[in-house]
Amino acid sequence: MTGHGDRRLLLLHAHPDDETLMTGGTIARYLDEGVDVRVLTFTLGEQGEVIGDEWAQLVADGGADQLGGFRIMELTRALAELSPPDQEPLRPRFLGGAGRWRDSGMDGAPSASHPRALVQAPFEELVATLVAEIESFAPQVVVTYDNVGTYGHPDHKLVHETTMAALTHLKGSVHPERLKVYESVTERSALDTGLAAAAGRVPEGWTMPGPGQLPSYPDDEITTEIDVAAQYPRKVAALAAHATQVTVAPSGTEYALSNNVLQPIGEREHFILTGPWDGRPVRDGRETDLFDGVG
Rank of each mutant, 00 (worst) to 15 (best):
F123T: 08
S216V: 00
D36C: 10
G293W: 07
A109V: 03
T26I: 15
Y145I: 09
M73I: 04
Y182L: 12
H156R: 04
T26C: 15
R7C: 08
G105H: 05
R71I: 14
G5I: 05
P176D: 13
N260M: 12
P203D: 11
A109F: 07
D18F: 14
A109E: 07
A78E: 13
T76K: 08
Q120Y: 01
D36N: 13
G152C: 11
T244L: 07
H153M: 06
T274Q: 12
A198G: 15
A165P: 02
R71F: 06
G62K: 00
F291Q: 05
R283D: 14
P250R: 15
T274C: 11
P203S: 07
L95M: 06
P122Y: 08
E267T: 14
S258D: 00
H175M: 02
P281C: 01
A237K: 14
L191T: 03
A132R: 04
V248S: 10
M73D: 14
S83N: 09
L58Y: 12
Q263F: 00
A109S: 14
L44M: 01
Q231K: 02
L11R: 04
G210N: 03
P276C: 02
A128V: 02
T207K: 07
G52N: 06
A78I: 12
G293K: 03
V202A: 14
E74L: 14
Q140K: 01
A198I: 09
V50L: 08
A230H: 07
L75S: 08
A238Q: 01
T247H: 06
G212H: 04
N260A: 14
F70N: 01
Q140S: 11
A249Y: 01
T23R: 00
P16H: 11
V185G: 09
Y151Q: 00
L75V: 10
D219N: 15
R188T: 05
V228I: 15
V282L: 00
V131C: 09
V159S: 03
R268W: 00
L273K: 06
I226C: 07
R178H: 04
E49H: 12
A138H: 03
E54D: 15
E74F: 12
D292R: 05
E254R: 06
N260T: 09
A243L: 05
V202W: 06
I51R: 04
H242P: 06
A197F: 03
L191M: 12
V261A: 10
N147Q: 14
R178K: 10
E254D: 15
A237E: 09
E19K: 09
Y151F: 07
E74W: 10
T274Y: 00
R116G: 04
L273F: 01
Y145C: 00
A240D: 11
R71E: 10
E125A: 14
D227V: 12
L170N: 06
P264Q: 14
V119A: 01
M73Y: 06
L21H: 00
S189V: 06
L195R: 10
V185W: 00
G152K: 00
K171S: 13
A14E: 04
K171N: 11
Y255Q: 05
G34E: 08
Q47Y: 00
R116K: 15
S258Q: 07
E46S: 11
R29Q: 12
T244Q: 08
